[in-house]
Design a binder for these strands. Structure first.
Lengths: 111, 111
DNA sequence: TTAATATATGAGCACATACGTATATAGTTG
DNA sequence: CAACTATATACGTATGTGCTCATATATTAA
């Protein structure tokens, strides 16, 4: 017996797809990874990631609207931080799964 | 103190992004969801999802090459099944997170 | 007010990818 | 062998999205 799957409406499917899509771009993952250390300003993230200011700003907005990041404006600066704690677990799950795959591949080559 | 993030090489970031991208399309999520019930043939998945045979086949191959699905050929038919068990947890995490968000939205409208 | 700084946004280009139609391949049956 | 079935693939098209460059907005300081 498999697990009993929840019924999923087309709208729910769409929402889930959008959530995964938000996490499917390298620059956005870099930003999320940088924010694992804590709240940071746009400028700090621009310097840390090496991206252009425009691009970083757009990706941060994308993640913010997706509910993944929180936005706090203070004076001239805007600070972003992780808003959805499940992001940690999601990344851990995927990293773990990919590491296992890599290990298996390595074992194949090692004989 | 935040959690100590693992260092992530650009290649690792790319891999993670690809994994999330594989899960970012509604038709692929439909297929994965259908396979939560167990192994199924391409034709069964075509009928269940209502997609065209070509499109379903392409998405199945995509998921298979990503290591998410397993492929088993038997006579004329090809059977696909979930190969990476973390997929269950990934979907549960995202569903839970989105449900919580929806509840909060609902609470706002309910006053 | 003007100048300076931090962030956001508009326009256009380049590229990726999802889709349908048609066809190819592989395996089975007669 | 030919006919049939299940799956995969080639091709063209349409759409989405990431990126850069330039500019706009907002906030602070002089």
């Amino acid at each position: 017996m498999g697990k009993a799957p929840r019924p999923l409406s087309p709208e729910a499917i769409e929402q889930i797809a959008r959530r995964f899509a938000a996490l499917s771009e390298p620059m956005r993952l870099k930003l999320i990874h940088a924010l694992f250390e804590g709240e940071k300003s746009v400028n700090a993230l621009v310097e840390e990631t090496g991206g252009t200011q425009a691009n970083v700003s757009r990706h941060l907005q994308h993640l913010s609207q997706a509910g993944i990041l929180a936005r706090r404006k203070q004076g001239l600066q805007v600070f972003y931080s992780i808003a959805d704690p499940t992001i940690y677990d999601l990344c851990e799950l995927v990293c773990g799964s990919l590491e296992k795959r890599a290990d298996q591949q390595a074992a194949v080559f090692a004989g």
